[in-house]
Design a protein around this nucleic acid. Sequence first.
DNA 1: TCTGGGGTCCTAGGACCC
DNA 2: TCTGGGGTCCTAGGACCC
Length: 442
Amino acid sequence: MYGLVDCNNFFVSCERVFDPRLNGKKVVVLSNNDGCVIARSNEAKAAGIPMGCPAFKIKEHTDPRQVIQLSARHLLYRDLSNRVMSILSREVENLQQYSVDEAFFVLPHEDVETSHRMMADLVTKIRQYVGIPVSIGFAPSRTLAKVANHIAKRDRRITDGVYWLVRPEAIDIILRRTAIEDVWGIGRRLAASLQAKGIRTAADFVKMPPSLVRSQYSVTLERTQRELMGHDCQIANPVTIAHKTIMTSRTFGKVLTNRDEIADAIVSFAERTARQLRDEGSVAGSIMTYVRGDHFREDLPFYSNSCQLVLDTPTSDTMTIVRQALNAFNNIWRDGFGYRKAGVMALDIVHGGAIQLNVFDPEDHGKLRRLMTSIDGINNLYGKRSVKLAPGLQRGEWAPNQNHFQTTSQTLHFYTGMIHPGPQADDTGTTEEESFGEFGGD
DNA sequence: TCTGGGGTCCTAGGACCC
DNA sequence: TCTGGGGTCCTAGGACCC
């Protein structure tokens, strides 16, 4: 039996923890460039604002003057996420965090009635201690736990935030009421294709012959089908042991044409990627840099390219990774185009190493490792990028736009003991260390 | 005017081998 | 003249997730 805990409207709930005036209002949190909606309050959902809606299109759905739009503060969200997860990990077994706002676990108690009481208490506890509302769904498979969680959230007044989807008859009824496009693992394309075959609900889908599902679609979709039948297929294994790729990328606040400005961004992305590698105790075997123009500008010639370069020795050393990212950038840079986005990705990641020793120059490498450790230490103490390698601009031309910070500085100040909020603290153009979205979730 | 940032898995098809 | 069949590995791209 799987449990799935999911924070309700997570990013909006986080903002409300620090500014109760947001309660009862139409609130949305915007993506990194203040581009589109990545979280909505129930009021905003009810007003018809869809997930992923570009900010400038909000007016097509409701009066934008009534909608409070907030720039994302991912560092804050992650801190609250850690608190929720920490409470959970003390109360349940095998907690497996799946994303910033949700986690699977194994049912702690065989007896449903006892378990239900425990879980309802847990929901209350998290609400009291952290201020975040959560819902919990139970079912024999993860895909069904997703369905159960959705019901727990939707009918919160009846369910107390906890819903059990266990009895076969109950599962049957619920699947008949679940639209095919709402099933976890079935996105827009698959939903459209299945609907064209007359499959409208999860119950219709379950009736398809599995062999047909596999031959016409894929083993992935067949697993989703079996999960809906109540068989645990470990789909989308949520145990993220370690990353296979690590990427840092940003859409620039404006179209750039100057090579140096973009190189400045590449350096920042490479630094951040290297730092994340070291935090995970991993090294990368190759580095990829990509650049691209602006999809939405039909008046400009579009150019997009990427280059992946193998490192002599897998490493997490910032200087090596920056150099290689710039080499790759030099290979793909073309004059005369406008650039809107770039990124640096670490691939062929190997775990369990610190900075790998270079066999040809062991002494130098010891120094390098100490240098990296020192830089990380200073940055931990005094704030991100207090010390950095490149003479990059304090806040580059490429920095994304974030113009919707509305919470009072007092509430932020109160919080600075634990986190590092506010747009001024970070010249990489964002206020978060990592960026998690919640498209399609929530 | 304004459209995010990160990930994972699977498949088809090409290159290459005997 | 005759030009198979089976296997592996790699990559690009598609689809999905939050």
